[in-house]
Design a protein around this nucleic acid. Structure first.
Lengths: 111, 111
DNA sequence: TTATATAGTATCCTTTTGTATACCATTAGT
DNA sequence: ACTAATGGTATACAAAAGGATACTATATAA
């Protein structure tokens, strides 16, 4: 998702937000991280469909946008924990609004 | 945006919602339609960066997802009006959450 | 007669996104 | 000596999304 036009009009904040959370797995990742700190491979188990490469990519992008924190423990085997930043936590209402609507939407689709 | 995995886990409703509103121009389009019924070329003027082809595509997808209504007037020159469906209106809280966060996010980026 | 406005299609191309697969270092366990 | 677990990276490829441009029909206005 690439929407770089911030200089258009009133509706653009919507696009600005979607640009940040619209990556293929970002929604689920943020959703999980909103409830707890999670290690890399734990995330993979929570989201079995995602490939390692994609998960890494999405996490890096979220980190670059300052939404999540990445903490590396100098251990062997490696240990890396991901958590929401304070800034990222401001997304909570958005994620919950998406989740609520998505839940109803899925039900409607089945019916 | 293509996230077709609905059968994964708890976080998926978030992705289900993003799948529906995550197209490049869908956010702005929905935002505008939430406040009024708009003709095709009016939308183009509201969103000058979008090409005709992309606008048509996004509108068709939104229509296929039952979020918007398309009303054609049998006139020449053509007149086509787009408006939110009742179902689409249930997206209002989501769009507003996105807009509120996006507004703050843009301010933060500038600072 | 020519231009303008409407709401689009059709075709081709580029960019972005996502997948598959193999590979790496280190340590603990068997 | 071999295996598994950790959290990745590198390379190659396929698919999806988006963009640029040209084209259409019809009626009205200049």
């Amino acid at each position: 998702m690439t929407h770089a036009r911030y200089d258009c009009n009133e509706g653009c904040p919507v696009e600005a937000a979607l640009e940040v959370i619209g990556g293929k797995w970002k929604g689920i990742v943020l959703y999980h991280l909103l409830s707890e700190t999670i290690r890399f491979n734990e995330l993979r188990r929570l989201i079995p469909e995602v490939t390692q490469r994609m998960l890494t990519k999405q996490l890096r992008e979220l980190e670059a946008d300052k939404l999540i924190l990445r903490k590396v423990y100098p251990e062997v085997p490696p240990k890396v924990e991901y958590s929401m930043s304070e800034y990222g936590k401001t997304l909570a209402p958005v994620i919950h609004a998406l989740k609520d609507w998505g839940t109803k939407h899925k039900q409607k689709q089945k019916a």
